[in-house]
Amino acid sequence: MVAATFVGETSILAGQAAWLAVRGKFSLRETIRQMAAMGVDSIPIIMLTCAATGSVLAFYVADVLVRFGGSGFVGGMIALSFLLELGPVLAGVMVAARSGAAVAAEIGSMVVTEQIDALRMMSVPPVRYLVTPRVLACILMMPICGLFADMAGIFGGLVMASTHGVTQSAFMESIRTMATHADLMKGLAKTLWFGLTIAVVACHQGLNTQRGATGVGAATTRSVVLCVVFIFVSDFFLAQALSGASASMR
């Protein structure tokens, strides 16, 4: 029952935001500001976490593969891991934790200080003023965040692998033979969905904040937990759907 209400409400919110977006009823300036705040400012921390993860992955993988004569697979394995799975998911989790939380807290505090009511008194619908720019910004920035995540992860892997007996040129050659453009695109397609999910869930939690300062904290926490769970669960289904789609294209 609670889940059904949640899915219903977030879908309606996403629909309203989309409808305003296609009619051009939103502030471009605010959207760009949000793209900077939600996306650009997240890129350093995304790159840091992905570079670390990429090098840890290479640390474990390179040893084993080199020992069993598979040093030609190290680069490709790490690249595929990042392009298809780790890049999009890690970028999504970082944006949910950083920007999703900030959005839920900001909108939540606007609820408890009656700023949302003040917007309504100015005949400015809160969905138009607050939700649409954030949803657009998050959808547009997530693939860019995903791209940086992929690059940082692969770079981290390359550096670590080179200290474990895999030369840089072997690493790159392996990527060229094993990974394709389609793999990159599949991963970036996931990030579009993650971007939509993060922004809509964060805005929904913020707008439904209960009165009082504890309400803002609760909304922020719920937003992060829901976003992260959604990213992992929907990733499972997206993986199936995207591989089905590319299989039928062949």
């Binding site: 009656e114 003040a118 917007l119 309504r120 008194m121 005949s123």
Partner: peptide, 23 residues
Amino acid sequence: SEAQLDRVRLRIGLVFQYAALFD
């Protein structure tokens, strides 16, 4: 509806008890 209210609210001003400024 909220959309109809938005039209009427153009003619109504509310001074909030705790100001409710956009911070």
